[in-house]
Amino acid sequence: MKNILNFKKMVVVVFIATIVSGLFFNMRTAYAAEYVLYGKKMTGGIGNYGNNPRYYWMSSYFNTSAKKKPVTDAMYMWNYSNGTGAWTPLMFYNSAQQYGCILDIHKVSGRPGIGAETTWFTWKGQSVVPERNNWDWCKIEVTNLYQAANSTKQKGTMVHEIGHVLGLAHNDTFPNGGTVMRWMYADTMSKGPTLNDFKGINRLYK
């Protein structure tokens, strides 16, 4: 099961979004529209306030500081609550070794109109639907569209995709920056997760 973030509004994507939302509406949970959760979560937690940190790995595509920075900046915003005052158990560190990481980030080719995708897996490598099953690890794949974007848009994309990794679903309640989980890309995503997003994380993991 993959979750798609587009940079451009496309009729076919809107059509697909309508179908997907119809299929999973009853399985997702919204809390006063502040956040929308898939309903399931990552096994083993998300860092236990730094006492049991989780790790993420970037493929060889991210071989320069310029390519790494949008990812590390996005994760920093999630780790340290982005100035919102929220207190979450989240703590992810970057690792140079893929083994033992619960988030892999890769660059792929093709997939026109798609900036990035998140897929959820069990330890056996089976992909899961996050509305139905907990997951053990995730993969974020960025595309040529991501590669062509500026660093600000790349950071916003990673902020959004990390939200999916953690268990947040799309939320179009706030048109002006109340969440980083809107279906279509918005420039406000680069400002990092909001208090509403962190409330969703705490609902899942506290």
Score class of each variant (00 low, 15 high):
1 M>G: 13
4 I>E: 14
4 I>L: 12
8 K>M: 02
10 M>V: 11
15 F>Y: 08
17 A>T: 10
21 S>C: 04
24 F>H: 04
25 F>P: 01
26 N>Q: 08
26 N>H: 05
26 N>F: 05
29 T>Y: 03
32 A>V: 07
34 E>M: 14
37 L>I: 05
38 Y>G: 02
40 K>N: 11
41 K>P: 08
43 T>E: 14
44 G>A: 08
45 G>E: 11
47 G>P: 06
51 N>L: 06
58 M>F: 01
62 F>S: 02
63 N>I: 04
66 A>K: 09
66 A>E: 14
69 K>E: 08
69 K>M: 04
72 T>K: 13
73 D>V: 03
74 A>W: 01
75 M>E: 12
77 M>T: 01
80 Y>T: 11
80 Y>K: 09
82 N>D: 10
82 N>M: 09
82 N>H: 00
83 G>S: 06
83 G>N: 05
85 G>A: 10
87 W>K: 07
87 W>M: 03
87 W>R: 05
87 W>Y: 10
99 Y>N: 12
100 G>W: 04
102 I>Q: 13
104 D>I: 07
108 V>A: 11
110 G>N: 11
110 G>E: 04
112 P>R: 08
117 E>N: 09
119 T>A: 12
119 T>C: 04
120 W>R: 03
122 T>C: 07
123 W>H: 15
125 G>T: 10
127 S>F: 01
129 V>T: 11
130 P>S: 05
130 P>M: 00
132 R>E: 08
135 W>M: 11
136 D>Q: 06
137 W>D: 06
141 E>W: 09
142 V>I: 15
146 Y>L: 04
146 Y>T: 08
148 A>K: 13
151 S>L: 09
154 Q>F: 00
155 K>A: 00
155 K>V: 02
167 G>W: 02
170 H>R: 10
171 N>Q: 09
174 F>V: 09
175 P>R: 03
179 T>N: 06
184 M>R: 05
184 M>Y: 07
186 A>I: 05
190 S>T: 00
193 P>T: 04
197 D>A: 06
201 I>V: 15
202 N>K: 11
202 N>C: 02
203 R>K: 14
206 K>C: 06
